[in-house]
């Protein structure tokens, strides 16, 4: 088992890219229950020692998805190669590193959405704290 340690100083968040931002402003939320769904995709570039974390957050009622936000977070990890292994013929990384990157991205997205939703009828919504392992298991379907 790879026990390489995650060192914060060797990680840098290089870029945040909004890919999709949809909000149905006409949707009346009054007295309606809705749910929030979160999914991710993690991609890497060994040569550039970088990761691209895509996070998709959507809000839906029983009727339809009324808000959807997809953001890409680009990280550089100086000691990326220390976390590499192989699993089923694919390049794998330790859960510790991917969980850290997912956690960083998700926390950043929480702040972004809090600000983006301030002037909407989703005003005041704060993304809940979630276990990074749950995020690692919920992938964006291609």
């Amino acid at each position: 088992m790879n026990t390489a340690k995650v060192i914060a100083e060797k990680i840098s968040l290089e870029k945040i890219k909004p890919i999709r931002e949809n909000l149905d402003l006409g949707f009346d939320l009054k007295d309606k229950e809705f749910q929030m769904n979160i999914a991710q995709s993690i991609k890497h570039n060994l040569e550039k020692k970088s990761f691209k974390i895509s996070l998709l957050v959507s809000f839906s009622s029983t009727e339809h998805v009324f808000a959807e936000y997809l953001y890409d977070f680009y990280f550089k990890v100086e000691n990326m190669l220390e976390f590499v292994s192989e699993k089923d013929g694919k390049t794998a990384f330790t859960g510790q590193l991917l969980g850290t990157l997912i956690g960083l991205s998700y926390s950043t997205l929480r702040g972004i959405l809090y600000s983006r939703l301030a002037e909407t009828n989703l005003n005041g919504i704060i993304l809940p704290v979630v276990n990074p392992n749950e995020l690692l298991n919920s992938k964006i379907s291609e």
Binding site: H44, K52, K90, A92, G99
Partner: peptide, 21 residues
Amino acid sequence: PSNDFTQDEVFEESISDGEYV
């Protein structure tokens, strides 16, 4: 950030070999 590394085509899918603790 340099422009090239944020291009989608240069990224491969990553998988996790364990859990986050």
